[in-house]
C-alpha cells in the first residue's frame, strides 16, 4: 500500500495563478468593507466566499450540540437516564441538559424503558407532536427489542415509530447511553434536515383522521 503525502514544500509555494486570484479576492474583500462593491461583482464575491459552506457546518454543529431531550422515562432505564443528567456523567457537557417536558419544544425522545401495549399509542402520539427535525433513541433492551420480557404485554419501539439509535443494555450504563447520544450527534452533524419520512422510507405511514362513517382512511 503506498502512501501519498502532499509534500510540505509543494504546499508552501503557490503558483502564479493562485497568487493573482488571491490578490483579486483580497481587493474585492476590501471593496466590500468599504461599501464599494456592488451589483454583479458583489454577488460574485458572496457566491465565492467561504462563508456559506461554513455556515452550514456551523448550523449542523450547533444543532448537534444543542439537543433538547424530552423527559420520557418509562421504567428502570429512566433511572439511568436521570443519572446521566447527574453530575458524574454529565449530559450538560454535550449541551443536552435542557430537558423539556413538552414534546412541542424538544427534538429528541429517549424511550427509556419498556413500552407496554397500553402505552404504545401514547408514545406514538407524543412522537407525532414533536416538530421536525426530530430524533428518537431507543434506550435499553426493552424498547429496542423485547428485552428481558418476551411476552404479550410489551411491544418493541420499532413496530410503531422510527428509531435512530438503539442502545442495548438492561439498563445500559450511563456511559453507554452517552455513547449512543454522541453517535446521534454525529448523525445530526452529517445531515440534520432531511425529514424522517425520507430517512426511513416511511412514506405512506401518515395518519389521517377517519372518514365520516368511522372507517379509517
Amino acid at each position: 500500500m503506498e502512501v501519498i503525502r502532499s509534500g510540505g514544500a509543494q504546499a508552501a509555494t503557490l503558483s502564479e495563478a493562485d497568487k493573482v486570484a488571491f490578490r483579486a479576492r483580497q481587493s474585492r474583500a476590501r471593496d466590500l468593507l468599504r461599501g464599494e462593491l456592488e451589483g454583479e461583482e458583489l454577488e460574485q464575491h458572496v457566491r465565492d466566499s467561504v462563508i456559506t459552506t461554513t455556515l452550514d457546518k456551523a448550523t449542523k454543529w450547533a444543532q448537534g450540540n444543542s439537543i433538547f431531550p424530552l423527559t420520557f422515562g418509562l421504567a428502570c432505564c429512566s433511572i439511568e437516564m436521570m443519572s446521566l443528567v447527574g453530575a458524574r456523567m454529565d449530559i450538560s457537557r454535550f449541551g443536552g441538559e435542557a430537558m423539556r417536558g413538552t414534546p412541542r419544544q424538544s427534538d429528541l425522545i429517549i424511550l427509556a424503558g419498556r413500552v407496554s401495549m397500553k402505552m404504545a399509542p401514547v408514545v406514538r402520539r407524543v412522537y407525532d407532536q414533536m416538530l421536525e427535525p426530530k430524533y428518537a433513541i431507543a434506550m435499553g433492551a426493552c424498547s429496542s427489542s423485547m428485552g428481558v420480557f418476551n411476552n404479550y404485554a410489551i411491544v418493541p419501539a420499532d413496530k410503531f415509530m422510527p428509531v435512530d439509535v438503539h442502545i442495548p443494555g438492561c439498563p445500559p450504563r450511563p456511559e453507554a447511553v452517552m455513547y449512543g447520544i454522541l453517535k446521534l450527534r454525529k448523525m445530526i452533524q452529517d445531515d440534520p434536515t432531511m425529514g424522517w419520512r425520507d430517512r426511513y422510507k416511511a412514506h405512506g405511514t401518515e395518519e389521517l383522521p377517519p372518514a365520516e362513517d368511522g372507517a379509517r382512511a
Binding site: 418509562l74 421504567a75 424503558g113 419498556r114 407496554s116 401495549m117 397500553k118 402505552m119 401514547v122 426493552c142 428481558v148 420480557f149 418476551n150 411476552n151 404479550y152 404485554a153 410489551i154
Partner: peptide
C-alpha cells in the same frame, strides 16, 4: 395505571 404492565408474573 397499567401503562407499564410488562407481564412479569407470567414471564
Amino acid at each position: 395505571v397499567g401503562y407499564l404492565h410488562t407481564g412479569i408474573e407470567k414471564t
